[in-house]
Each structure stands twice: as structure tokens, then as C-alpha cells.
């Protein structure tokens, strides 16, 4: 379970994120939408303890994340290229991350086999370094690495951007499968309202750091979101 209490981040006097109370129970797929600067990435970075909250805290399984290591064992995440190690080959990188989660070589090989469909034969088996891959393929690599440690909580920042259409559809199918099969908690931010309503059961709209809508996805959600963002 992920719990947020009175979380605030202030940069030079301006509050960029202010969430008084939010609970994300286990197994929930949580979508985060909002225009640029709404605070989506800031929120994710606060959850991942990459920036220090000005006030309040984030609890994962009732333990604060701030200066703590315990949440790292159950959380998989990919926000941007900083989550890759770009001078490794893909195999080396997956091995590195897998070993951090005490996976054997066999475990890692099995995992990569299960990702075969998602990778579409473009990722594995070449001696190419990660920095030489395209943005879209780097994203695939990052998403796969977030999953290698069997996380209970998965955090992805705009996973659909930069992917080609087929990969977007594959990713959607893949994420839905992870939810039903493994009951994984997911936090996904997206600019694509279509995708996010298809993947997430709950959608929260952020504006200027505050939660302005908290919806359970149903047939009308997409329309509601579209009318909210309409200009």
C-alpha cells in the first residue's frame, strides 16, 4: 500500500506539489494525468526519494521512503534515461539489475524470454550499447528493467510516448496482463487520455500540484477527461 500524507514540495517559495491525503491500495492501477508542470514527475520523484519533500511524507507499506532503503526491494520504476546505464549492452544491463534483486542467470533468461513479444526482436542479441538505441527502444529497455525484480509497485512516467503504435498496443496489453495475473500496483502518468483510461482503474487529475479530480474509470471517464482538458 502506498500512502501520501500532507505531501508538499516547495521550490523557492512556490508550491509545486501539494497532496493532503492519498491512498493507493495494493493491486490498484493508478493513472496520473495533467498538463506539463502539473507536478506528475515531481510526485513520482518524491515517491522514489529522489527529491526531498518540504513537508509530509510518502509511506510504502507503512514505512517512510525518505532516506530509507527498504522500499527499493518492492518497487520497480522508469522515469527517464537516468534510470538506464547507457554504456552497458542490454544484456549486461538486465543482468546487472537482475543480480541486484538476487536473480540467477536462469531467472533472468526466463524473464527476457517472457519479454520477447514486447521487445519485438529489436533489443536483445546485439552488442549495441544502450546509448546507441533509439528513444523508443530505450524506453522499452527501461520498462523491462523496472519489471525484472518482480516489483509489487510499478511506477512509469509517460510510458507510451516515443513508442511506435504497435508497441503502444503491446504495452497496453502487457500492463493489463500484469494487473490481472500478478495483481501489481501501478502508477502510470500519461498525456494520452485514451491509453491511460484503458490501462488504469483509477485516474487522478493534477493541476498546479493539486488533485482536482479523482475518478474511478468507467465508460464515461474518457469523455469527462476530454471535456476537462478541452480548451
Amino acid at each position: 500500500m502506498l500512502q501520501v500524507t500532507d505531501l508538499q514540495k516547495i521550490y523557492s517559495g512556490i508550491s509545486v506539489l501539494n497532496i493532503s491525503n492519498l491512498v493507493i491500495p495494493d493491486g490498484e492501477s493508478f493513472g496520473l494525468v495533467g498538463n506539463n508542470g502539473a507536478g506528475k514527475t515531481t510526485f513520482f520523484r518524491l515517491i522514489l526519494d529522489l527529491i526531498e519533500p518540504s513537508f509530509g511524507e510518502v509511506l510504502i507499506d507503512n514505512k517512510t521512503v525518505v532516506r530509507n532503503d527498504s522500499w527499493k526491494t518492492t518497487t520497480g520504476s522508469f522515469l527517464d534515461e537516468g534510470f538506464l546505464i547507457d554504456f552497458l549492452t542490454t544484456e549486461e544491463y538486465f543482468n546487472f539489475v537482475g543480480k541486484l534483486y538476487n536473480k540467477s542467470e536462469g531467472d533472468i533468461a526466463n524473464f527476457l524470454e517472457s519479454m520477447k513479444d514486447f521487445f519485438n526482436d529489436e533489443i536483445l542479441g546485439s552488442k549495441k550499447l544502450i546509448r546507441d538505441f533509439s528513444k523508443g527502444n530505450q524506453k522499452k529497455i527501461g520498462i523491462a528493467a523496472a519489471l525484472i525484480g518482480d516489483p509489487k509497485i510499478l511506477i512509469l512516467d509517460e510510458p507510451f510516448t516515443a513508442l511506435d503504435p504497435s508497441s503502444q498496443i503491446r504495452l497496453k496489453r502487457f500492463l493489463n496482463d500484469l494487473q490481472t495475473r500478478l495483481n501489481m500496483t501501478m502508477l502510470i502518468s500519461s498525456h494520452d487520455l485514451n491509453h491511460v483510461t484503458e490501462v488504469c482503474k483509477r485516474i487522478v487529475v493534477l493541476e498546479k500540484g493539486k488533485i482536482v479530480k479523482d475518478l474511478n474509470t468507467n465508460a464515461d471517464t474518457l469523455k469527462e477527461l476530454e471535456s476537462y482538458f478541452a480548451v
Binding site: 529522489l50 526491494t73 534510470f83 546505464i85
Partner: peptide, 8 residues
């Protein structure tokens, strides 16, 4: 960021 969010 990678090193800080993985199990290290």
C-alpha cells in the same frame, strides 16, 4: 537515479 531507485 538508476542506482538510487534499484535495490542498492
Amino acid at each position: 537515479d538508476c542506482l538510487m531507485t534499484r535495490n542498492i
